[in-house]
Nucleic acid binder design. Structure first.
Lengths: 344, 344
DNA sequence: CTGAAAGCGCTAACAA
DNA sequence: TTGTTAGCGCTTTCAG
């Protein structure tokens, strides 16, 4: 069995169909200017010999490209896999293929992935995942992306970045306000906050929202413990242990994403702390399992799937003179993990 | 601002560096036969003008491709996103880029995605997600993949497929036996099973495992209710409602994956049924949240991340004369959602 | 050690 | 309606 004979080419199809390359190309592309009978025959031949057009040749020749890139922090994280699902949804709909890269919450690696995607001449690049509060971290990325855009590439980000590109902006601050107000309205004052790295804009914005809610009650973030750990389930777990140890009088813990909140719930269960009886817990995002946890998790819903879809849709539109920005909406999902502060 | 001036090409680098195309190419590729001084200069120039090689041109010219394809049923499903994470891990490590496609558990669409990936001349294709018990459903895919392999392409699947390619075979049957034995050992006899589509080999194999466990106790699958719904959280939810209605005397429910089990838990909680007090619940996979549910979910761990990594690793090896097969191992995670059958 | 030139497979003018 | 012919940007013999 020939191991490496090459795949059938358009020339093979053309020859077997007894037509020219151009005609074959036109027939397969379903373009104008070929008699239906010839076109049908060509298509039939192509099917027979199992012809599949070489995307690289097609792209190189100036034909329509057909791939978009997506950069996520970590695809195993439900927040990102839901966004990816949204991106894949519209991509599939439009016959596009998507290349996914991990940035691992590392600005250096993110830049590397951007370069990779550019090398692949993707039509568009969607960067999902928080930007960084330090503009310097994105300086080089911005330079590279700008060059990419000048050569006709399209870019959209999800989240607040220091990048001059179109953006889907999650309602992080309003979400923070809403969840903060919710917890405060339940009478809680001894509130602990579990945050991810302060370098992430997502963390900064959610914190700012909570602070606004606090201010409305005459309080401030300085009055309550804010712990920065990893922005993951394990970070939440570790953070909750520390919070419990250092601040045993807390009546509520707000985690800055559901993954962390799940870690918190786990610690509380382990220590036999009643939720929300003794301590209320709230998160952000409303990942799919949030409603199925026990107690079901109070959180602020961000439409991840739609965000992914919106970002790609935006990136696929023709470039506009100035950056487009799109909000996301958010919704308080008051469930069982939060309750009124206990009477003393 | 020029909107569509094109990206810098190798020719631009060569010109500015005052060398020929060939030398520029060799320098950048770090190949032999160029004086180190010249090579360094070329690299420097390339960096300066922000040159990034065009992957399509490179691939077309016969250079090494550097992308692999991954087909999953649905990236938003934790089972698949964990597998994807494993695939991305080894891909990143080797400087490969991965294209992800959704098959949506639809054989027709899966074939379409395979074609797409082949058109992209990916070095390798990894198909994650159950095969189908009906060989006819994969006949055409098999033909296409065989052709792909004959032209040097590499393929690996995760799961039992009717495809003549390398495979990572999840311990579905042993896992079924182990979880079945576990539930039986707790004294349960009125057990309900919630399964996904019987067309999926994953479902068939897990069921077979449970049946084996049943046989060991002188029972059979025919003696207990087996309900086929969607292989998702919502399928589990709907299925549990029906099971509860039709078979109110059940003392245990085994869901054929954790997603379904989560749906079951949700229904039980809603109806105030104590778990495991009144009904024990078990799942398959051990997705990340399984341990953090309340009660924590008894399940059989399958190493999804490693499976993804193993599949890509396998696919990247040179082709061998006969199909390679690799088992996965499995581990019973006996947690809080299962307990001894209640005394009457 | 370096350069010239021939493609890789396809699309897109331009002819016929 | 169909065919001919240039490239797209890169790698890679083959000369020099």
């Amino acid at each position: 069995m020939a191991k490496s004979r090459s795949a059938p080419r358009l020339a093979d199809v053309a020859e077997r169909a007894g037509v020219s390359l151009a005609t074959a190309s036109r027939s397969l592309a379903g373009r104008e200017g070929v008699s239906e009978s010839v076109a049908a025959h060509v298509r039939e031949v192509a099917l027979q010999i199992g012809y599949v057009a070489n995307v690289h040749a097609r792209t190189l020749a100036g034909g329509a490209t057909s791939t978009v890139g997506l950069i996520v922090h970590e695809i195993g994280d439900p927040y990102f896999s839901e966004i990816a699902s949204g991106v894949l949804g519209v991509a599939t709909e439009r016959g596009l293929t998507v290349q996914i890269c991990h940035s691992g919450r590392d600005p250096g690696n993110e830049l590397h992935q951007i370069r990779t995607l550019i090398a692949h001449r993707t039509d568009a690049i969607v960067i999902a995942g928080s930007g960084y509060t330090d503009p310097a971290l994105q300086e080089e990325s911005d330079r590279v992306l700008t060059a990419f855009q000048e050569t006709g590439g399209r870019v959209a980000v999800i989240g607040r970045h220091h990048l001059s590109v179109d953006a889907v902006l999650p309602d992080n601050k309003p979400a923070g306000e809403v969840i903060g107000a919710h917890v405060l309205s339940l009478g809680h004052r001894r509130i602990g906050i579990l945050a991810g790295s302060p370098l992430l804009t997502t963390v900064a914005d959610r914190l700012a929202g909570i602070e606004a809610a606090l201010h409305a009650e005459g309080l401030s973030l300085d009055d309550i413990p804010v712990l920065h750990t990893e922005f993951t389930r394990d970070g939440g777990h570790a953070g909750a242990e520390e919070l419990l140890r250092e601040h045993p009088d807390l009546t509520a813990i707000i985690a800055l994403n559901d993954a962390m909140a799940i870690g918190v719930l786990s610690v509380l269960r382990k220590h036999g702390v009643a939720v929300p009886g003794q301590i209320s817990v709230a998160g952000f995002d409303d990942v799919a399992v949030a409603a199925d946890l026990a107690p079901s998790l109070t959180t602020v819903k961000l439409p991840m799937v739609e965000m992914g879809a919106a970002a790609l849709t935006m990136a696929l539109k023709p470039a506009s003179a100035r950056r487009r920005r799109k909000g996301t909406g958010h919704q308080l999902m008051a469930r069982d993990s939060t309750g009124p502060v206990r009477a003393r």
